[in-house]
Amino acid sequence: MSMFNKKKVGILGTGDIARMMAKTLEGMRGVQCYAVASRTKEKAENFAKEFKIRNFYGSYEELCRDPKIDLIYVATPHSAHYDNVKLALESGKNVLCEKAFMLNEAQAKEMFDLADEKGLLLTEAMWTRFLPLAGKLKEILASNIIGEISMVMADLSFNMVWKQRIQDASLGGGALLDIGVYGLTFASMVLGEDITDIRSQAVLNEQGMDIQDIVTLKYRSGQMAVVTCSASAYGPCKGIIYGANGHIEVQDINNYSSITVYNNAGEKIGFYKREKQITGYEYEVQSAFHALEEGWKECPEMPHALSLKIMNIMDFVRNQTGVQFPQERIMDENTDN
């Protein structure tokens, strides 16, 4: 690619995850971070200076109006995704939106419908589905090396209970949408979506947000999964797959660092390590631009149906654990009238 037709990405938001994306784009070929927007010009300018980004805007509207941008990456808290994605789509922009995609399935469905209506690409940036090692895991499972699979355990836990985005109900807080989504995604990648029963428990903070969750899933096939997440402790962050002839361990289910295969005697019979990467975010960006080049409106690694399914499961879990966001109470009141 010549320097003239580099794909241009605009980052909406300037938090930690926006920084990760800016760093990613710096290291990528054929793609550039063309602009960044914050709700204050000063924040946007500081961010732009740090990452040598040419354009910065003090409002999300200005970013979405920039005619040169090919793709907008939404990096705001979950609670803002609905408004931000809506703005971008209504401005005619393709969107890669950070996970958890929305607060609930209803919001997600509305945004996918809007994207379809506008003929635009909208993808959830569930980056683990795009990783090369995720493809490797699918191959290993298809080879049937550990035989028929009966169970999956998946954990992602970090002590980050002090973070506002976890504590605060108005930000779409809690552990489930922030880190539990990875365990649910891991289970879905291995066992699929044909779930017949879900049981969940959670410990809630004073604001009614879940600080830790345990979710058990039962599948029509007789397979089961246990997904755990804690925002008040460090866990093993592993995915474990139980087979008739052995088991597989995936380290770091939020960015696979290795896959180890064990036989039924517990001996290592296979080991796959993460290849060198910029941050791991590059794969979802590549996929989004590949989809745009092919004229697709969704990425095959993370189709709309899968985003909706995971949101649907999280709605179900929150219904059991009693976690509700203030935005949803407003929705309930509107539908009651």
Score class of each variant (00 low, 15 high):
Phe4Cys: 02
Gly10Arg: 01
Gly10Asn: 03
Ile11Lys: 05
Leu12Ile: 05
Arg19Phe: 05
Met21Ile: 06
Met21Ala: 03
Glu26Gln: 15
Met28Gln: 05
Arg29Asp: 15
Tyr34Gln: 08
Ala37Ser: 14
Ser38Thr: 09
Ser38Asn: 12
Thr40Tyr: 14
Thr40Asp: 06
Ala44Gly: 12
Glu45Lys: 15
Glu45Val: 09
Asn46Met: 08
Lys49Met: 10
Glu50Pro: 10
Ile53Gln: 12
Asn55Phe: 10
Tyr57Glu: 08
Tyr57Gln: 05
Tyr57Pro: 04
Ser59His: 04
Tyr60Gln: 08
Glu61Gly: 02
Glu61Val: 06
Glu62Cys: 01
Arg65Cys: 02
Arg65Val: 00
Asp70Glu: 12
Leu71Cys: 08
Leu71Pro: 02
Tyr73Phe: 14
Thr76Cys: 08
Thr76Arg: 07
Pro77Leu: 09
Asp83Tyr: 10
Leu87Val: 04
Ala88Cys: 09
Ala88Gly: 08
Val95Cys: 12
Cys97Leu: 06
Glu98Lys: 05
Ala100His: 05
Phe101Gln: 09
Leu103Thr: 05
Glu105His: 02
Ala106Asp: 09
Ala108Thr: 10
Glu110Cys: 01
Met111Thr: 05
Asp113Ile: 00
Gly119Ser: 04
Leu121Asn: 11
Glu124Tyr: 00
Ala125Glu: 12
Ala125Arg: 00
Trp127Gly: 00
Leu131Asn: 03
Leu131Thr: 03
Leu131Tyr: 15
Leu133Ser: 05
Lys138Arg: 14
Ile140His: 10
Ile145His: 01
Glu148Ala: 05
Val152Trp: 06
Met153Asp: 09
Ala154Met: 05
Asp155Gln: 01
Asp155Gly: 01
Leu156Met: 10
Phe158Gly: 04
Met160Asn: 13
Val161Phe: 07
Gln164Tyr: 09
Gln167Arg: 13
Asp168Ile: 14
Leu171Arg: 11
Leu171Trp: 13
Gly174Met: 06
Gly174His: 13
Ala175Trp: 07
Ala175His: 10
Leu176Gly: 08
Leu177Ile: 06
Ile179Val: 13
Ala187Pro: 04
Ala187Gly: 09
Ala187His: 03
Ser188His: 12
Asp194Leu: 10
Arg199Met: 13
Leu204Tyr: 12
Glu206Thr: 11
Gln207Leu: 10
Ile211Gly: 06
Ile211Cys: 13
Ile214Asn: 15
Ser221His: 04
Ser221Gln: 09
Ser221Thr: 14
Gln223Met: 11
Gln223Cys: 13
Gln223Ser: 14
Val227Thr: 03
Ser230Arg: 08
Ser232Leu: 02
Gly235Thr: 04
Gly235Tyr: 04
Pro236Ala: 02
Ile240Glu: 15
Ile241Asn: 10
Gly246Lys: 07
Val250Asn: 02
Tyr256Trp: 12
Ser257Tyr: 03
Ser258Trp: 11
Tyr262Asp: 03
Asn263His: 02
Ile269Arg: 00
Lys276Cys: 01
Tyr283Gly: 00
Gln286Tyr: 15
Ser287Met: 08
Ser287His: 06
His290Tyr: 13
Glu293Phe: 01
Glu294Cys: 12
Lys297Gly: 08
Pro300Gly: 02
Pro300Leu: 08
Met302Leu: 04
Met302Thr: 12
Ser307Pro: 01
Leu308Asn: 04
Leu308Gly: 05
Leu308His: 07
Ile310Trp: 02
Ile310Lys: 02
Met311Leu: 10
Met314Leu: 02
Asp315Lys: 01
Arg318Asp: 14
Asn319Thr: 09
Asn319Glu: 13
Gln320Asp: 04
Gln324Glu: 11
Ile330Phe: 07
Asp332Thr: 11
Asp332Lys: 11
Asp332Arg: 11
